[in-house]
Write a protein that binds this DNA or RNA. Structure first.
Lengths: 112, 112
DNA sequence: TTGATATATTCGCATATAGGTATGTATTAT
DNA sequence: ATAATACATACCTATATGCGAATATATCAA
């Protein structure tokens, strides 16, 4: 078996930095493909392909205006990621970090 | 070019559901490889391989105790994901969702 | 030393990727 | 009709993936 498809879910779609970049632009408002090409260091075909992936997982929606296609963010599709990662937030508090440091040190003493 | 390596960053490492499952167990405390194999529907070699990926991106740390290797979460490595996705949270408020619904409807009327 | 337990690594496979380049398809303008 | 603009799709390549199966390595037990 290979890796899960980029279109499998938001986690996979967003793993690609370019696609996060695109979302980072769209969060400011609707943009045409050309707009995105102008702002990002990505070719037009690549932008279109990335948008297709983002659309398949519901992260963006589009509408046609003349010969333009305007894409906009559908942020709620990011919610599963937020919900998942949120549970871990309390674990990077300073207290737990210190415990980790302590365990690392024990390890070093045992084997180093 | 191919897809970015799973070990490229936390985003890519965590895109794989099995690895999220592993973290979901480790969030409750340190576990040996065997512990994880018993709890998850994954073979031992696969668990070891997933742990290797997680370790390479700093999401877990390990220490040896006898012939066991105990893995523990290093949650702070998830912070970049949280920081990124957090910015989008306000965008899935009800008001913006309704605007999206409205735009979708316009689109349907224009072209459907 | 021999065997058992715990974990890691290797090998083979099918698969889908991101990017480049080229081309197709609407839509508008002349 | 023709050309130009805006966008999508097809084709190619290199790459690394996740899984299964087998094997290697380390540690402890008898």
């Amino acid at each position: 078996m290979a890796r899960a498809a980029t279109t499998a879910d938001a986690f996979n779609a967003v793993a690609e930095p370019r696609r996060r970049q695109i979302l980072d632009v769209l969060v400011e408002g609707e943009r045409s493909v050309t707009d995105l090409v102008e702002v990002l260091p990505v070719s037009q075909p690549q932008v279109s392909k990335h948008l297709k992936v983002l659309k398949e997982v519901g992260l963006v929606r589009s509408r046609s205006v003349g010969r333009q296609r305007l894409y906009r963010l559908n942020a709620i599709a990011l919610r599963p990621i937020h919900e998942w990662v949120k549970e871990y937030e309390r674990h990077w508090s300073e207290r737990l970090d210190r415990l980790d440091g302590y365990l690392d040190e024990l390890q070093r003493k045992d084997q180093g």
